[in-house]
Structure formats: structure tokens, C-alpha cells
């Protein structure tokens, strides 16, 4: 890792320790507040890779991944938000009137949600007027449902639009993960929308971001293992520190070793030729193992939100559902490996 990258990581870590760590539980309970958005914008994180004309920082890929890793190690919700703004919004909104809105969200003035479920998975009904008041289109599983505007599919289910919307009904459940953003159903107002392109554009944006999603996972792995390792140093049971017991020490150090391998790969490669997919598929499975072990190391305390470790367990699974596309991504990797169609049956 070169000095610039080290410095970048240190900067993000300091920022997070100062501005996220002490409110991490509040983010889980109440969502990401505007003052944090403003600070993220001032640091240039919200628009890390966006063009300067929209208020972006035009950072290189490794610096961007460093931001994602470090932020996610404190709050995966914040990491996912920065990812969605950079890897999706900045690629889709950088034109015409939508460009004005891109400026607004990158400055932290406004917020942007994503009608994610139907866009990626084709899940939910994308056509017809389904809102409870007969106006607008009901979108299921929208990320950041309290946002001012949304990227969603229009009635045809093929075109991406930028539109206003409102939460369909009062929540009867919390989302499993990324609670700082939340996931809920939203009714999209179809009047006065901006056209942003085709559904396939957003799918491509995601497919081109394997390493960046892996960087979010890397942060989750790091954050959860940090907690577990620190806890194992101070917690005693049967007269010894947890760290002194071989099963605890071996499993945590093994996971840390895998984390290190993943990190060096993530910062030394690019998304070409399926290399990003290598990292993504490894990171997805490692994040589940690491967060599970980190929670288990904490015992009963790990099961309570106050200890800040169960969120990683929830978030790893949630991100695996929304950003990692299970069989689709495994099939993509298979096709890279075999050089032809593979894994259909």
C-alpha cells in the first residue's frame, strides 16, 4: 500500500472515529442524520469519484475503496450510502437537469433513495397504479425510503426515472440491515420525472463495482473482528482471558489472516477480467463467517445492539441480499473461469 493510500485510510479512520463511532448506535436506531451527510460531503466522501463539476472529488479507485472500507468498519450503512452515491448515482445523474440534483445530494443538501428490489431482481410490481390513493407506483424494497427523491423504474419497467415519492405506510418492521438507511415500500410520484436511461444501465453499474462492494464487506469484516479481538483481550471466563483459549484465538486470527489477504487483493487489482468478482465472492462468504464469529465471541452481549457487533451480522446478510446477487454473480464468475456459458443447470 503506498503512502497516499495509507494517508487516505488514516484520514477516513480519524473522521469516522470522531464523527461516526460515538453515534453508531443512533444511526442504527434513527437513521443517518443530515449533519452527518454534510460532514461526509465536506470531506469529499459523498462524491468521492464523481466529476468535479458536480461537486465530486474525482478520486482514483483505490482511494474510493479505502473510503468504503473505513466507513463501513464503523457503520456499514454509511458505507453503502457512499457506494450508492458514487457507483450508481454519479453514473446515472451526471446529465441535464438530473445533474443539478446530483450536486444537491453530493453536497448533503438533499438525499436520494433507490428502488432497488425491482431494478436488480425484478422483484415487486413495477407497472400500474398501485399506490393506496390511486396515484403513483408502489415500489417495494426501496433503500433509503425517507430520501427526497428516488431512482426507480417507470411504469414500463424498463426506463429509469428520477422521481419524488413517499413511504407507503407506517413501518411495521425494521429492515434486517443497513438500518441507517432503511428499506421500505415507497409510492413514486410519476409526474415531473427525469429520465435517467435504461434498467440495464444500473445493472451494469453494479456489475462494474464488484471490488467496491468487496471493499464494503472488507470494512464489515474489519469492524466486526476489531470488536471481537478487543473483547477477547479483556473478557475473562473460567479464570482466563478469552484470547488464551485456542478455539477463540485460532478462529479470530484465521479470519484476520483471510481479511489481510482480501485487503491486499482489493487494493492491488481492478475490476477487469472478472478480478473484481474474485474479491466479491471471497468477501461475501468471509463477511458472513467473520460477523458470525465476532458475535459468538461476545456471547449474550453480542446479541444486544448496545455492543455494536450484531449490526455487522445483520448488515453482512443484508448486503449479500441487495448488492451481491447470489447465483447471478457465481454464474458470472463461472463464465470467466470457463470462458463460455457455464452454471446454467
Amino acid at each position: 500500500m503506498n503512502d497516499d493510500l495509507k494517508l487516505m485510510k488514516e484520514t477516513v479512520r480519524d473522521f469516522s472515529a470522531k464523527n461516526i463511532e460515538n453515534i453508531a448506535l443512533k444511526i442504527e436506531r434513527e437513521g443517518i442524520h443530515k449533519d452527518l451527510l454534510k460532514k461526509l460531503a465536506e470531506q469529499g466522501f459523498l462524491g468521492a469519484t464523481a466529476p468535479q463539476e458536480y461537486g465530486g472529488s474525482e478520486l482514483d479507485g483505490a482511494s474510493y475503496r479505502a473510503i468504503l472500507e473505513e466507513l463501513s468498519s464503523f457503520s456499514p450503512s454509511v458505507g453503502v450510502l457512499v457506494f450508492l452515491y458514487n457507483s450508481i448515482a454519479s453514473k446515472l445523474l451526471n446529465k441535464g437537469k438530473a445533474g443539478d440534483y446530483l450536486k444537491e445530494i453530493l453536497s448533503g443538501e438533499s438525499t436520494l433513495g433507490f428502488g432497488y428490489g425491482e431494478i436488480l431482481e425484478g422483484y415487486g410490481n413495477s407497472s400500474g397504479n398501485e399506490g393506496s390513493d390511486g396515484k403513483g407506483i408502489l415500489k417495494k424494497d426501496v433503500i433509503f425510503p425517507t430520501a427526497n427523491k428516488f431512482i426507480a423504474l417507470d411504469g414500463s419497467g424498463q426506463n429509469l426515472i428520477l422521481a419524488k415519492g413517499k413511504i407507503e405506510k407506517a413501518k411495521d418492521k425494521k429492515s434486517l440491515g443497513i438500518r441507517g438507511l432503511g428499506i421500505s415500500d415507497v409510492i413514486i410520484d410519476t409526474s415531473g420525472t427525469e429520465n435517467l436511461g435504461l434498467r440495464s444501465d444500473i445493472v451494469k453499474a453494479i456489475e462494474d463495482s464488484s471490488l467496491e462492494i468487496a471493499a464494503i464487506y472488507l470494512g464489515i469484516i474489519k469492524g466486526s473482528l476489531n470488536k471481537a479481538i478487543e473483547y477477547a483481550k479483556v473478557r475473562t471466563t473460567f479464570d482466563h482471558y478469552l484470547k488464551d483459549y485456542s478455539p477463540v484465538a485460532f478462529s479470530l486470527s484465521n479470519l484476520r489472516a483471510e481479511e489481510e489477504l482480501l485487503r491486499s487483493y482489493i487494493y492491488e487489482t481492478d475490476n477487469e477480467n472478472g478480478k473484481g468478482l474474485n474479491a466479491l465472492i471471497f468477501a461475501e462468504s468471509l463477511s458472513k463467517k467473520a460477523t458470525k464469529q465476532a458475535l459468538q465471541t461476545h456471547g449474550g452481549y453480542g446479541y444486544l445492539e448496545d455492543f455494536g457487533v450484531e449490526k455487522f451480522y445483520r448488515d453482512a446478510m443484508t448486503i449479500s441480499t441487495i448488492l451481491f446477487r447470489g447465483r447471478t454473480d457465481r454464474k458470472r464468475l463461472s463464465e470467466e473461469v470457463f470462458g463460455t456459458e457455464a452454471g446454467n443447470l
Partner: peptide
């Protein structure tokens, strides 16, 4: 959760996971 994706995430299965 892996087999049901968003259906599990927004439905009842995520509760089983927790």
C-alpha cells in the same frame, strides 16, 4: 436467506435469521 433473496429480506424469513 440466500435462496429467497429479497423475498426473505422483506418477509418473515429474516426474523428466523435473527
Amino acid at each position: 436467506m440466500e435462496l429467497t433473496g429479497l423475498y426473505g429480506l422483506s418477509g418473515d424469513l429474516e426474523r428466523y435469521f435473527r
